[in-house]
Design a protein around this nucleic acid. Structure first.
Lengths: 231, 231
DNA sequence: AAAGGAATAAAACAAATGTTTCAATTCTGC
DNA sequence: GCAGAATTGAAACATTTGTTTTATTCCTTT
């Protein structure tokens, strides 16, 4: 055992790293405004001044946390995780959805209910200025990948008028589990988005979406130059 | 023009009502912690003391707002809005989804992005003690209605193992539009959940869900006593 | 080993905020 | 019209919180 300082803190991480990790958790749990730098400092076994020293204040810390969280998440679970370009698009979609569930909800990812996954939900609800960068760097490429899979499944003639809602419906199902975890647990405890259920839930969302996509595809090819959606 | 007091406020509402309305908007936009009673008082043309007088503090106000918002929302757009019991379950589902979109996103409802709809999203993300009551009184009956429609569509043999995920997928799509409105607008402006798009989006989610439900139904009836979900 | 910079600790500061207090005003029942 | 209750207005209070300051400790370089 090594003695680093007068406090026996975790030697494997620097103060800056400890602050980032603790801040991700606390910002996620409590939101930007409700989180306090005192609480974060305490959780990170660090001093208040260290936060302002390394991150120039609360906002700077938040921006760094956001970048860190997304970088970690998409590094451990990339958009193309387990996707082989040669595989049929249905299987690519399957891997995409599974990737989303694990990125959002697994302990190795953003930790869903108790962790940094809620940070993402919060940004969806009320984007902060720091989120603009995240959108361009992570979210849009991620969406583009899903759209390209959908194009492979539905044909090139599908316009964005149907493609994008499809993408939204698929992503929406995944994110809803991360968002509404607490309530889902209260209403349907068997489907609580905990580690043990991720595979089953991802598989379900995949099948459900396959059906939905097929239904939309049929709808758009059958009604050629009629009203796009039935009234 | 009538002179009510020294301030020329809206005569049609009592102070208590004005506070409730303003608080719903501000709590929704900023969240419980970030919202300030001073800001709410100003927006309601009321005094700080009036809030504490009528609602016994910030928490009391929040509980009252939550009850008020859900009561209003489910009064104007009941669960069974436009649903005839005699209609085929597919059409009942259609009305159910349309009702959700309008309740969550229309100006007459919770106002989506700019209004009280975000309050609901916040409660899903981090339920407050005041939400327990709301769950029992509004959410669970609402869910039960959807489940009964799904039973009518998929047959009585479908167990909760498939029923509830179906319900979650459907509700998830709807709520995601209310949650992620700001980001959707940035990524797919054509599908921004604004008043003009509600009918089209609801119709899309309905069709998509019809396909999803059918796919799940097939899956569960074909693989009788096999593994419930394909590996 | 010494010096200089980097990092941390502790206290102080100023602004924001929920709550309380008390006087002034308005409303209601008689 | 009046008395008492209900409501509102304005100020004061105590706490929390982000930031800054100053001194001390740790680490690297020479």
């Amino acid at each position: 055992m090594f003695i680093i300082g007068k406090h026996m803190t975790d030697c494997s991480q620097s103060t800056k790293e400890r602050i980032l990790a603790a801040a991700g958790d606390i910002f996620g749990r409590e939101g930007f405004k409700a989180a306090t730098i005192r609480g974060i400092a305490k959780a990170a076994n660090a001093n208040i001044a260290a936060i302002n020293y390394h991150f120039q204040g609360k906002e700077g810390l938040y921006a760094a946390v956001l970048e860190n969280v997304f970088h970690q998440g998409f590094t451990r679970f990339p958009s193309k995780l387990g996707i082989e370009e040669s595989a049929p698009p249905e299987q690519q979609l399957r891997a995409f959805i599974k990737g989303m569930f694990y990125r959002l909800l697994s302990r190795d990812g953003w930790g869903g209910l108790s962790g940094q996954g809620r940070l993402i939900a919060r940004e969806l609800l009320e984007p902060t200025p720091a989120f603009e960068r995240i959108l361009d760097k992570y979210i849009k490429p991620h969406k583009d990948r899903l759209v390209s899979i959908l194009v492979a499944m539905m044909g090139k003639d599908i316009g964005p008028r149907y493609l994008l809602p499809c993408a939204i419906s698929i992503i929406g199902q995944c994110i809803y589990y991360a968002l509404a975890g607490p309530v889902i647990t209260k209403i349907a405890v068997e489907d609580s988005p905990i580690e043990d259920n991720l595979d089953r839930l991802a598989e379900f969302v995949w099948l459900f979406s396959l059906g939905g996509i097929e239904r939309i595809r049929l709808e758009t090819t059958h009604t050629v130059d009629n009203t796009p959606l039935p009234h």
